[in-house]
């Protein structure tokens, strides 16, 4: 091959390789819309909001401290929340991990009906009627799931419905690791 073709052909092959790699990752289930959250490694945003089931009581960010918890932003109108709901219900039955819900821009009656109909995996659901708390959590696509450690620091975020694989390969190992670290500390 002539030397003058070397550069253009190399550039072309590199571009093809990059496209191929990204397509392969999408095929393997990578969500290219997912934006890395700057909140990972930082303390949870401050909030104090009423509970969905007990409107006269409030729940504050301080109450997330002291144990590892899974924080899940959900809504009854959110279609993809249905995909992960059974997993959360199963998790609440099979493990002792506290799952805290943030009910996002929902009508109370709709949200209560949804929990009655499909099961309630949440230790507590926070009622975020105007969606302001969710903005503080950097939410942009329900459902969103966070792992919060004993110190109230966000360790993990997943946008979109969690899957069995995500739960098994990423979320559970992280929760177990954080729990062990917390026990020895």
């Amino acid at each position: 091959m002539k030397a003058r073709y070397l550069l253009p052909v190399t550039v072309f092959l590199v571009i093809v390789a990059v496209f191929g790699l990204v397509l392969y990752q999408i095929n393997q289930g990578r969500n290219i819309r997912e934006v890395p959250s700057p909140l990972i490694g930082r303390a949870v945003p401050q909030f104090e909001l009423p509970l969905l089931l007990e409107p006269e009581q409030t729940f504050s960010s301080e109450q997330l401290k002291g144990r590892v918890s899974l924080v899940n932003i959900w809504a009854s109108w959110c279609v993809s929340c249905r995909y992960e709901h059974d997993l959360l219900v199963q998790m609440s039955r099979d493990t002792d991990i506290s799952i805290i819900g943030i009910n996002y821009k929902d009508e109370r009656a709709d949200a209560l009906k949804w929990l009655r109909d499909t099961g309630n995996p949440y230790e507590a659901s926070i009622f975020d009627y105007d969606g302001r708390a969710a903005i503080d959590w950097g939410a942009y696509g329900t459902p969103e799931t966070f792992v919060v450690d004993q110190q109230g620091v966000i360790r993990y975020k997943h946008t979109g419905p969690i899957t069995e694989e995500k739960l098994r390969d990423e979320i559970m190992p992280l929760i177990n690791k954080l729990r062990e670290a917390g026990d020895t500390a």
């Binding site: 890395p36 700057p38 503080d136 950097g138």
Partner: peptide
């Protein structure tokens, strides 16, 4: 906004 959503 950047604090919550990043430079994106």
């Amino acid at each position: 906004m950047v604090e919550r959503y990043g430079h994106y």
